[in-house]
């Protein structure tokens, strides 16, 4: 029997769960304007997965990369949820990300 597939499925559950955690934290401390950075990190992980010889490790990198891309699309909605009072809102101004003038011109993606 192939247990590796099931292990990858369980890993995806864990990494998506971790995604909920870091999206909430990142929006709280940094703000949603940082969304391109997890997006690029996720794309980078998927690109890296193409050059890993072992299929299992490549699969784990792919799952992790996809979950970071999804997390990037959640940041804007998380900011709205915090403004609606559904989540704790950071009262302090948040640091602006590098290249913020370019980021502001792009509509933040969401699912």
């Amino acid at each position: 029997m192939m247990w590796e597939g099931l292990a990858i499925g369980l890993f995806s559950l864990g990494i998506i769960g971790f995604g909920f955690f870091w999206v909430i934290r990142m929006e709280y401390y940094l703000g949603y304007l940082w969304w391109p950075y997890p997006l690029l990190f996720g794309i980078g992980m998927i690109a890296l997965s193409l050059f890993v010889a072992d299929a299992g490790w490549s699969a784990l990198l792919g799952v992790t990369g996809a979950s970071f891309i999804w997390g990037a699309t959640e940041l804007k909605e998380q900011a709205v949820r915090a403004e609606l009072g559904w989540f704790r809102r950071n009262p302090r101004p948040k640091p602006l990300p590098p290249f913020v003038s370019i980021i502001r011109k792009i509509k933040a993606p969401h699912l």
């Binding site: 995806s12 997965s49 193409l50 890993v52 010889a53 490549s58 699969a59 792919g62 799952v63 996809a66």
Partner: peptide, 12 residues
């Protein structure tokens, strides 16, 4: 190695 790419697509 395309396993990661397929898994990324499936996950997303």
């Amino acid at each position: 190695q395309t396993s990661g790419l397929w898994l990324a697509l499936a996950t997303f």
